[in-house]
Amino acid sequence: MPRRLLQRYMPHPETLRRQRSLRFMGHLIGNPTLWVLSRRSVANAFSVGLFSAMLPIPFQMAIAALGAWLARANLPLSVGLVWITNPLTMPLIFYGNYRLGAWLMNTPAREVPNRLSTRWIAEQMVDILPALAVGSMVTAIALAVLGNLVIRLIWRWQVSRSWKARRRRRKSSCEEDAL
């Protein structure tokens, strides 16, 4: 994984620690092990972030931060990945999770009315919640495992590619020196 690319977009820990709204987390933000960019920390960050993003609960970012601390994952990546479920994508993702949960529980899925309202959602919540929880957990676990494996494979491929390029450069420089 291109470490320089990730470092370019990550905020500096000292900048975050100075923000008034994050002062209570100063000890967590200042922990240097949560800012390391290694294959393990980035892969774990993807697991934690994707898992937290699929949970249909408030405070997903706080859960991702706690998960990053527990899993020794990269904190900014874990918290940033939660924004996969932003206000634009959240309804589609959670509706898909609900449909998956309804299918897994072998219950008929509720059809969305032409005019969706919060009142309709509140009335249907008792019926929707079990399927949404099951579908969200299955999706969260599957994405966490898949994300971890994909990042580890990409990282390994990138390192292998850079080693081969380095070997080619050394070989060509040795051949030039021999001439």
Rank of each mutant, 00 (worst) to 15 (best):
79 V>P: 01
86 N>I: 02
3 R>T: 15
76 P>N: 02
37 L>S: 04
51 F>G: 00
168 R>I: 10
27 H>R: 14
135 G>R: 03
125 M>I: 13
33 T>G: 02
128 I>P: 05
8 R>Y: 05
62 A>V: 15
89 T>L: 04
178 A>K: 14
138 V>D: 00
158 Q>P: 00
80 G>N: 00
123 E>T: 07
150 V>F: 08
140 A>G: 09
45 A>L: 12
31 N>R: 15
18 R>Q: 09
2 P>C: 00
25 M>N: 01
66 L>V: 15
14 E>M: 09
174 C>G: 10
49 G>D: 09
26 G>V: 05
35 W>S: 12
64 A>V: 12
53 A>V: 05
22 L>G: 02
61 M>F: 03
23 R>C: 00
98 Y>H: 10
149 L>D: 03
173 S>D: 13
11 P>F: 06
68 A>F: 13
106 N>M: 13
138 V>M: 10
23 R>D: 00
118 T>G: 08
35 W>P: 09
84 I>P: 01
146 L>H: 04
61 M>V: 14
152 R>F: 03
83 W>Y: 13
18 R>K: 12
72 R>A: 08
177 D>H: 04
106 N>K: 15
58 P>L: 09
149 L>T: 11
52 S>R: 03
99 R>T: 08
172 S>E: 07
10 M>F: 06
178 A>Q: 15
163 W>M: 11
108 P>C: 04
88 L>V: 14
99 R>H: 06
112 V>F: 11
80 G>H: 02
50 L>R: 06
176 E>Q: 07
64 A>R: 08
14 E>T: 10
91 P>Y: 03
